[in-house]
Design a protein around this nucleic acid. Structure first.
Lengths: 147, 147
DNA sequence: TATTGTTATACTCTATAACTATA
DNA sequence: TATAGTTATAGAGTATAACAATA
């Protein structure tokens, strides 16, 4: 069995590309006082009209629930989300975006998306779509494994 | 402009997929006392018959040269690589794999590749090739930018 | 003057364990 | 007995700045 060169190693390429896009996104988000991890929590909160539990956030983001606590703390301190008691389970606290949070995420998302698309400009639009679909299938299969 | 859901965001998917494959690779490499960063340095050293300068390693890996120093320190302490003076430039130290390093990287690479392929098994072989090619083009374009 | 390797430092991210309150 | 949230801690990864030796 012949070994490929490191430059042809999918894991290595994923790490490099992920690092590139994360740096790009963080640079775009700095204007809003956000980094990608906080931004991803805000993003999900905005898209969930009734909010999400921190457990749900951890699941979607692939993070440990203990990490989500700190991210929500920071977003709450910045006034972008708030924690509300769940009407059905007193253990659960729902993370809900504030009006400010919704505005910030809208502007931040457009800036970040634009910068990341530019970072990926070596790929055509349809190639970026292909990349997204391939990655999404890997993530879904991993999520299915851990269920 | 309509915002996509986070699950359709290429940056987010890259981060998740990179994390998944890095964890998988680290688990496979633990048997050899390696982690992906150290492994990637060893990998390049093995493939360069006359060794590489730490500056070259940093360039290929997308790391800061100061980080490469520590990775080479660890590999040298484990007897997998050694630093040799460059015959042409007394500032430069060439990182060269030892015989042990070559053996270890061969076995480690086969284990890690096998595990990562399994982690990506939602994609067919040809889809994994497509993914690799798309990512490689992004990395090359970024490398060209910083030149 | 510029480049190679190095040391140092601070910050972010990741991984785990343990605890509380509720279910 | 299990689950949601939380606190704490340690280790790994990332980002910069500054310095000595050499080009």
């Amino acid at each position: 069995m012949e070994l490929p060169t490191l430059a042809d190693n999918v894991g290595f390429l994923l790490s490099r590309t992920s690092g590139l896009t994360a740096r790009t996104a963080n640079a775009a988000l700095a204007e809003y006082g956000l980094r990608v991890r906080q931004y991803s929590v805000l993003y999900l909160a905005v898209d969930a009209p009734d909010g999400l539990s921190q457990r749900e956030l951890a699941g979607v983001l692939g993070l440990d629930p203990s990490q989500v606590v700190l991210l929500v703390d920071e977003l709450a301190a910045a006034g972008l989300v708030e924690r509300r008691p769940s009407p059905t389970d007193r253990r659960t606290r729902l993370v809900v975006a504030t009006a400010t949070g919704r505005q910030v995420r809208g502007r931040a998302a457009r800036d970040a998306n634009s910068q990341v698309r530019h970072r990926l400009r070596a790929l055509s639009d349809s190639e970026q779509d292909t990349l997204r679909d391939l990655l999404a299938r890997v993530v879904r299969s991993a999520d299915a494994d851990s269920t």
